[in-house]
Structure formats: structure tokens, C-alpha cells
Design a protein around this nucleic acid. Sequence first.
DNA 1: TGTACATCAGTGAACGCGCGTTCACTGATGTAC
DNA 2: TGTACATCAGTGAACGCGCGTTCACTGATGTAC
Lengths: 206, 206
Amino acid sequence: MAKRGYHPGNLREALVKGCLALIEQKGPTGFSLSEAAREAGVTPAAVYRHFEGREDLIAEAARQGYDIFGDLMEHAYNDGQPSALTAFYATGRAYLAFANKFPGHYIAMFESGISIQRTPELNAVATRALGILEKAAAQLSEHIPAEKRPPPQMFSAHIWAMSHGIVELFARGSPGTKSPFPPEDLLETAIGVYLRGLGVIPQDNV
Amino acid sequence: MAKRGYHPGNLREALVKGCLALIEQKGPTGFSLSEAAREAGVTPAAVYRHFEGREDLIAEAARQGYDIFGDLMEHAYNDGQPSALTAFYATGRAYLAFANKFPGHYIAMFESGISIQRTPELNAVATRALGILEKAAAQLSEHIPAEKRPPPQMFSAHIWAMSHGIVELFARGSPGTKSPFPPEDLLETAIGVYLRGLGVIPQDNV
DNA sequence: TGTACATCAGTGAACGCGCGTTCACTGATGTAC
DNA sequence: TGTACATCAGTGAACGCGCGTTCACTGATGTAC
């Protein structure tokens, strides 16, 4: 029988889980390393067996987040095939769904202030996830009349920014800035208007 | 001759200023009340003469931010008159300019997690500022063919989200997510595409 | 199968530190006469 | 103009607290023979 708080082999995961729970409750800087240890039922000192400190712990949470995020985006993208349009919409929706379903990871990734460049591994996993959005954008942009086609990178940056903005302002309990529209509708409509502006959807086909 | 650190009459402002500097350097939760006091050259206890605590101090920074923001947006809006289109573009640009020029205020307003509902005064000043964006949107939406006109609130929510997303991801040193495009261009192009999608700008007029 | 030993992942005590908050205090400023 | 007094905005000492970090330690697990 294990002693209270004795987690051989899985403390690392338990700490990340506790960290995520705390991030959701108190924000990325609203808790201490000791608190995270307590959450996992363990002495603060034990944390140092697995992480260099608080930042390192959050970076690991973000890393896992980008992993999940990448998978989600990839699935959405593939499910939308072979239509470039459907695939593109699906990745947008997946962004929002991810933020809803994994708020702790989302915060660790986009609001905690930890750098994507922090470790090569974090960089790689983030690049992969965001690359899928760019791929979807590139594919769709082939359908755009050449003379009004923006660079696909700009294209995906726009959609990313829009999704992120909607999440930040309207989807999470961003304080007091509720809009009268559900965030999903907001995003859906925004992408629709945007794509019409690009000529990907015909003007009449409203 | 005043003693070192003796600020009769203006400590309140000095504290807000110090707080803004610290927010820029360390983020909205990266400093303590004592640090803010030190920044203003004053004992921690002195802070309690003017604020209830750290949160209250940040709320005041946000309040001043919304005030400035409202003025900026209003000027931009008025300068763009009488063209609804020009006025609208100008408010979008003003959003970005504000984030650039007053990063501390911007963070206090949109990233510190303090609620717009915190005090009636904060609520009022925020509502005023954001109302200008809605006004510009409403005015512009009169130019949109009725059958494809989204509610102006949705319209302004889109532009707000897009601006906010661009600021968060690309304009401030958001870690490692530099895009190859200047944020101003990103926003300008995004709004252009979006307005084309709405039919406010003719499709050919690219 | 049993024993001896190395490794590993935790404990818990200890440390110095800066924090938030309170309190009686002090000295500068403003006001009445 | 001078004086007495109230008010106001700061000081600085004190407190208890939780934090991060270190360290020697312990006992469970895995491995060799």
C-alpha cells in the first residue's frame, strides 16, 4: 500500500493535471509551486524531481496542449476533405472547440506568457499545430482568383487572429464583455464574410 | 523641502504610473503592492491611503486606459467623417495604435482579468469607449444591402475580435509568434477583405 | 526462490525572504481669528 | 501678520504567513546471482 501522496511513476502527470486545474481557477500566475504540489498531494520538494520550477511546469502543460491541439486540428482538417472549404471551416471550429474543452491548456499556451521558443521541443510541437491552419489556408487559397489572393500566411494569420480574439473576448469568461451572440456563431459568420470577401464563396450565395 | 518620497497630493498618480511601468515589464500579476510602492518611492503602507489593494490599483489603471482609449477612438471616428468607411477604418487603426502606444493601459484593460463590472464607473467608461466602435459599425452598416447585413453588434464584435487577436498574437511581443507581416498591414488587409465580403466595398475595386 | 544491493522518488525539517496589513506616530499644510 | 489648531498624507516598526529552495533521510522497487 502506497503512503499518502506517494506517486511513484506518475507524479509528473499528477502535477501537470493539478497545474491545469489551478490555471483554470486562478490564471497562469495565480498560484505557487507549493500550491501545485499540494494539489497533487505531495511535498513542494518533490516537484524538483520532475521540473525545474513553476515555469517549467507550465511549459509542460503548454506542450501537452499543443499536442492535443495539433491532433484536433489535424482531425478537423482531414474530416473536411476533400473540400478545401469544408476543411477550412472545420479547423476554425476546432480552434474554438479546443479553447472550450481544454481551457487550462489554452491558457498555458496563449496567455501564460511562456515562449514558444522556450525549448526546441515546445517550438516543434507548436509549429506543427499552427502549420495545419496554414496548410488549410494554402489549400483554400488556390481557389481564389490570383489577382485578389493574399499570401496564405496572411490569410491564416487573419483567421487565427479572429479565432483568438473571439475566444479571448467572448468565449471565455472574459470579464463583463459578453456579446449577445454565441462565440460559435460569431466565428462562423466572420469566416463566412471573410471568405466572401476573398471570392471563395460567391457573393450571391448568401 | 519635501522629504524623500513625500508626495502630498500626487502619490495617487505616481502609484498608477509606477503600476503601469511594472505591468509593462512584468505583466499584470508579476509584481506586488510593495513593489509598486517602491516604484513610487514610498512605503507600502502609504498605498492604503489611496487604494484598497493591488487589484484596486490595477482597476484604476484600466479606468484611465478606457478613458484615453475612448478619446482616441472618438477622435479617429470624427476625423474620418463624413465618410462612414473612412471613419470605420480609422477606428480600427486607432485600436492598434492605442495598444502600441499605451501597452500598460492595454494590458490592464484586456489582460489583467479585472472585470469591467468591477465598479459602476469602470463599467461606464468602458461602455463609452466600446460604444464608439459600435456606432461606427452601425453607421457603416447602413451602406450594406439589407439582405446581407449582419446586426451591427455582430459586425463590431468581429472587428473588435480581429483587432484584439492581432494585437495579442502579433503586435505585442507575444512569445515567438511573430508573423512576417506588420500588424498594421495585417489589420488593414483583414478589414478590407471583410468589408468586401459585406459588400461595402465593391468586389472589383481591389 | 532468497538475499544483497543499487536506484529511485518521495519526505520533512530547515533557512532566509518578501509580502500584505496594522498601528501609533509625525511633521507639513490649510484655516480661523 | 501671527498664532493655535485640525487635518492630512506620509513613516517605520511590527506581525504572522507562505513561499522557494536545499538537504540529509528513508523506504519501496528492480536487478544480479
